[in-house]
Amino acid sequence: MTPASRALARVRRIVPDGFPWQAASWPASIERAAPERGLGVDYDTSWSRRYPVRLARAVLLDHMATPAVRALATPRVVGAEVLDGLDPPAIFVANHASHLDTALILSVLPPPMRHRTVVAAAADHFFDRRMKAHLWSFCLAAIPIERHRVNRRSAELAAGLLEEGWNLVIFPEGGRTPDGWQQEFRGGAAYLSVRTGRPMVPVHLDRTWRLLPKGGRRIRRAGVQVTFGLPILAAPGEDARRLSARVEQAVAVLGDESASDWWSARRRHAAGATPSARGPDWSSWRRAWELTSPSRDHPSRSGGAATGPPSGDLRWALTRQRKPSGA
């Protein structure tokens, strides 16, 4: 550890995470006053899709972000073959636990696809200040999406980009999970899929909340798994709401697969017994306890491929994580 990082760590120990050290999250049921003009959904991101900017971003993503994510997260990718048969553009629909999720998905996409992908980002969080808006639209090709209600402008923009051939990464939970369990999917992604006729690829990100949980400040090393599912298209006559439920279920099945194995997950799915990804309706400590229970880890499967972290490492990450909930 360098002296500088030690000093930083010391400051971080003094300054804890979360409210009231940071601003409180805005309750979903409360309407928010309009932000400054030209920010939020009104922010114009078209500059970030011009060729020179794309080039700069490709350098950033390929040579800095991707290696960094691989080093930190040692992602194990399952179902990547889905991407080979995919007819882009597509909508990648993933659960959301960590700020690193976006970088993680981008890093496991094949480079050509990665360079033609935009990311739906919460207008009220990533585009509320000008500097932030510039930063995220440059780094991730983020586009502003209103998360608590339907906004015509943001829907138009996303649909237009899909039609132009851009892939879209979207987290339909509308925000990172506060406790590791999946939240209800909002209908935006399915609506875009129905409207543009582009397929949705369910993606499940496992254990990324350990990497950098909501409210967390320190990035921890942890082995994560990215599971891709088969693309989903709206059946004739299927509306966005039903489609959304279907894709939420698909992500849940991937989650189950990630926690057990493909065959058991399929069987449970067929029997309608996929465990709820939203977690049991328990008190908060029990939910956290359950999430960190050793039975949810599968060190036996982490051997073999070079992508898996050594099991000892994972244990270590776990015990550190479990401390606060057990206290």
Partner: peptide, 10 residues
């Protein structure tokens, strides 16, 4: 009256 959800601040 604010209904408390998971995202509601303390």
């Amino acid at each position: 009256v604010l209904e408390v959800e998971r995202s509601t601040p303390p």
